[in-house]
Write a protein that binds this DNA or RNA. Structure first.
Lengths: 333, 333
DNA sequence: TTGTAAGCGTTATCAC
DNA sequence: GTGATAACGCTTACAA
């Protein structure tokens, strides 16, 4: 064999017209059972496969979607992207995964490319700035859903996010319940909307337990890898600190090892809870408590909505919050 | 505006023919400087973008490649995929990232889909079984390169891999140099080619230091999450064990926490070295030594080769080994 | 129930 | 240096 089989080849081989073959393949229109069998047999024998470029061109639909993700080597992102991709594949869509590295220019370049490739929909994950689709010059706007990223114009998208506020609130509150008197929050210096929500949850849990939030004493921003000194300093100034709610597990792990290095006993002296429930949490010593996001649910809801928007069976303007779950392990007992 | 601009629109708006517009866009064939300016101006004003479906159909080329990866939430894979995708994007290619979950059926389904979408090339990462492209019925075989995965037929691909053997050898050897008398290897139960190479490196380092490899005493297979008991047992039977070379950092972290739980002091009682140099290695306590793969290099070489194969400027049959580097941290001092 | 043919947006061949 | 036009493989009126 010397070239790929086309519908025309199948038509000739099975003695029908291309139109009929197309109808059989897509199971639309009418045709006799006999014809169906005949055509399918030839398709099977030849191993014919649809040429999607042609199909896309004709139908103006690509059966592909693009995902913009800030950092695919981050566990949470990788996990949710992986699940989305799987569900999309099972529903006949393929996925362009684009790693924006939190770079706005890159993001725009990717969007242009995705538009040019004719993706049917867009999934936008996280990122610091509000997402603005109007940068695209596509006239018939590509439908998109946002995960954890507030869009500039909420009315033309679906927003999906974990209940970061509640997760942070529950985690912090559980520190109090475990006996902490003065927990603090350890965060990074990016201000994504999820980070803001988590901070608010922390603050409200503080005030519920009779403490006022003071950013100089109740918060530490972990920037460099050598955070041990920063933590040491803060602990010396505020010896009453006896708990950490970390905005993610990477920071939690960082804090944990710093504290161990400073000779603290965990959880006896200081308790820690992280966020995202990364796999290595069960392998840290002590095992790390964490707030788990329901990535299965997030992925499912995301796919349902983007395909819904593509098929015009879903509507924009929705905002969906997915519950989270606090996983208690040794670090906060 | 109500529909996307096509070349035809650009042609009308700039008063030339579609052929000329195409020539200008692709900068091939001849046209006057004046025409070029005129056309480009219209393109800029309209925000015209190539319709890739049409271009693909006509040229029988899609400017896209597919990546088969076993598990994108594994740090090493995510990292190398991310870098490959970035370089490909900069060279005008977009990437379908397919998570096979080490499932052969899924893999085949993905391959069929990628073939159908008309990808120009394939990048196959890792996996236990040898890769067999002949499962595809594409006549004009799609070029592919393999990373860390031995292809069934080596002659029609390019094989790229880290020097797993050397990494394992160096790591093990350095355990001896640090004073270990009886190091063992901690591995998983998958037999990828890289795992085999690492095991061989370990064995040879053992024999170089006068020890014979005995799988019942020099090797532990970490299967479940509750590996602490297994390790405890082995240590009781073989109290001379004073070093672990773990086949990856996940297992290393697992071993490390188990040992701490068993009251061992690291690195005083037992030293540990992992593989892959994951980011959290510097956040474990003690910090974890590890063999670092050169993902930048791997990604660059991979892209050079796959594009080379696509453009017929590279040849198959090559086998490229990328050096690795042992990063010493506290766990093996 | 099936066939014919137009057309999707490109590129490439050929003519001028 | 430029323009007509065929062709890529498919879907879908419209005919039969």
């Amino acid at each position: 064999m010397n070239k790929k089989y086309s519908i025309k080849d199948i038509a000739e081989l099975s003695g029908v017209s291309v139109a009929t073959v197309s109808r059989v393949i897509n199971n639309n229109g009418r045709f006799s059972e006999e014809t169906r069998k005949k055509v399918l047999k030839v398709i099977k024998k030849t191993g014919y496969q649809t040429n999607f470029s042609a199909k896309n061109l004709r139908m103006n639909k690509s059966f592909s979607v693009g995902i913009l993700v800030p950092d695919i080597s981050n566990y949470f992102f990788a996990n949710v992207v992986q699940k989305i991709e799987k569900i999309l594949f099972n529903r006949g869509y393929s996925t362009f995964i684009c790693n924006t590295a939190r770079d706005e220019n890159k993001e725009l370049a990717y969007l242009k490319m995705l538009e040019s490739k004719g993706v049917d929909g867009l999934i936008i994950i996280s990122g610091a700035k509000a997402f603005d689709i109007s940068k695209l010059n596509s006239p018939n706007k590509i439908p998109f859903v946002c995960i954890d990223r507030k869009p500039k114009d909420r009315s033309n998208t679906v927003f999906i996010g974990s209940d970061h506020y509640q997760g942070a609130f529950d985690a912090t509150n559980s520190l109090f319940q475990a006996g902490c008197k003065f927990p603090i929050i350890a965060s990074h210096n990016r201000s994504s909307s999820s980070a803001v929500d988590r901070l608010n949850g922390f603050k409200d849990a503080l005030s519920k337990n009779g403490l006022d939030f003071d950013s100089s004493r109740n918060q530490i921003v972990i920037t460099t890898n050598d955070s041990t000194n920063a933590i040491d300093l803060l602990l010396k100034e505020n010896p009453q600190i006896d708990g950490f709610f970390a905005i993610n597990d990477s920071i939690a792990t960082n804090v944990l090892s710093s504290l161990l290095r400073l000779g603290k006993e965990i959880p006896k002296d200081i308790k820690i809870i992280g966020f995202d429930d990364e796999p290595q949490d069960i392998h840290s010593y002590p095992t790390l408590s964490s707030v788990k996001q329901d990535t299965d649910k997030i992925a499912q809801v995301t796919v349902d909505n983007i395909i819904g928007l593509i098929d015009h069976t879903a509507i924009t303007g929705e905002s969906i919050t997915i519950p989270v779950k606090l996983i208690q392990r040794d670090s906060s007992l």
